[in-house]
Design a protein around this nucleic acid. Structure first.
Lengths: 232, 232
DNA sequence: CTCCAAAGGTATGCCTGCGAGCCATTGGCC
DNA sequence: GGCCAATGGCTCGCAGGCATACCTTTGGAG
């Protein structure tokens, strides 16, 4: 038997119970900026269907988010569950997963996504979307930066046309963001990031896969070395 | 709200029930050749711990594999559950997932893995392991080829040192293999594959990331176009 | 002003999966 | 030959999660 491959194949089949997984997903959609502050989450019934869990479980998850002041719910028609404008800081609790593990997977997924996106012929809507996310990120405040940054990177993953790749990038970014929340975000870094973002998007829109990969690699290696410096 | 990213984030939280997921994992370990014919699976108690499910569920999954003639169990000390020597053909049932989706993710993950592996300084054990898998694949019969091929590709993923990346590659390969099972495996393809495998491994062992990526990309694009040809 | 559609809020009963313990079988060790 | 450790085989009660149905609130449509 090939010994090491077992670690990957015989890992736990479920990350947590249905409740925890559901909380995690809703948190992701908020923390990654997919549902922005002030916006409404899909209805409980809708979420239950999409997430493949019962409405009871969705409600328990939402209750948990309410108690942590991430969302508030309003009843009646045109009611719903809305993301609060002022989001609480993330709980610093979690241990760091294996740093190497997180960064390796992120690099593979995101440089691959950039290259793949650049190799496709994008429709006008997708091109506009990418430019819009770039603009959002470059004009965002320090407070909003992590969220806008994630939206941009997710938009790049979506531009590959692969839902599985997009899901993998979202998952990987959450893990990376947990680490990034522990290091300071400084104006100079932000300006540098914006310049790199611009290069990435321009390369994708120009249809230059090699340049897109290269630009994304440099961008990620920047934050990776920041992380290694702060956390070691 | 960013509309498209929702599809990734609000996908179902659990792939199936615990039983189905467990069957899937055990099947993967057999079909990908991690546990070869004649070899023993870990004990039920061990599997239950590692997979994070109850022993009852593990037993139900194993029963299912027994009924499909994948494994047989023997009681008593030095007993256990053993992979049968003659494995049944895979049930042709499953629909094709989105072809583009599968192939895109596979390309990103595996070219990234090859590049990353080539960029690391590998220990002697890892280098020997890679050579051994290459040898296995190149001398295998048509019948065993898919399994030996997967073992080689998994070994490359493991050489990145990232468990998460290895798991992602294993998952992606299973999905790709489901498709590949529907197209013929021909001697010329096999010879061609072996030559490409050699290039990939040599590039990794030589520490040439760009060459490793390039070689892997060509290798994957070969089977990808075969698939597109046969399945469209 | 009335109605009603759509959203959140609540309650009940079933079924899956889990934990824990015990039994049965086997082959090496003393 | 007897012991015993490790493995598969089995059972029972409990907790988590689910489907389903119904109630309450709200604001726009008619």
């Amino acid at each position: 038997m090939v010994e090491h491959a077992q670690e990957a194949l015989f890992r736990p089949v479920r990350a947590g119970n249905a409740f925890e997984e559901t909380v995690e997903r809703l948190m992701q959609s908020i923390r990654l900026g997919v549902v922005a502050p002030g916006e409404r989450l899909p209805s409980e019934r809708d979420l239950a269907t999409r997430l493949g869990v019962s409405r009871v479980t969705v409600r328990e998850a939402i209750r948990s988010l309410q108690e942590n002041h991430y969302v508030e719910s309003r009843r009646g028609r045109y009611g719903g569950t809305f993301v609060k404008d002022s989001l609480p800081k993330s709980a610093p609790g979690k241990e760091f997963g294996d740093l190497h593990d997180v960064l390796t997977l992120r690099r593979v997924l995101e440089t691959g996504a950039a290259e793949t996106a650049a190799g496709r012929s994008l429709g006008p809507a997708e091109r506009r979307g990418l430019r819009a996310r770039l603009e959002e990120a470059s004009t965002s405040s320090l407070a909003e930066y992590r969220r806008k940054d994630s939206r941009l990177h997710l938009a790049i993953a979506e531009a590959t046309g692969s839902a599985a790749l997009t899901a993998a990038v979202a998952e990987s970014r959450m893990r990376a963001n947990e680490l990034l929340d522990h290091i300071p975000l400084l104006e100079p870094n932000l300006a540098h990031s914006n310049a790199q973002h611009e290069r990435i998007i321009v390369s994708i829109l120009d249809g230059d896969p090699a340049a897109a990969r290269q630009a994304m690699a440099e961008h990620l290696d920047g934050t990776a070395s920041l992380l290694r410096g702060f956390l070691v």
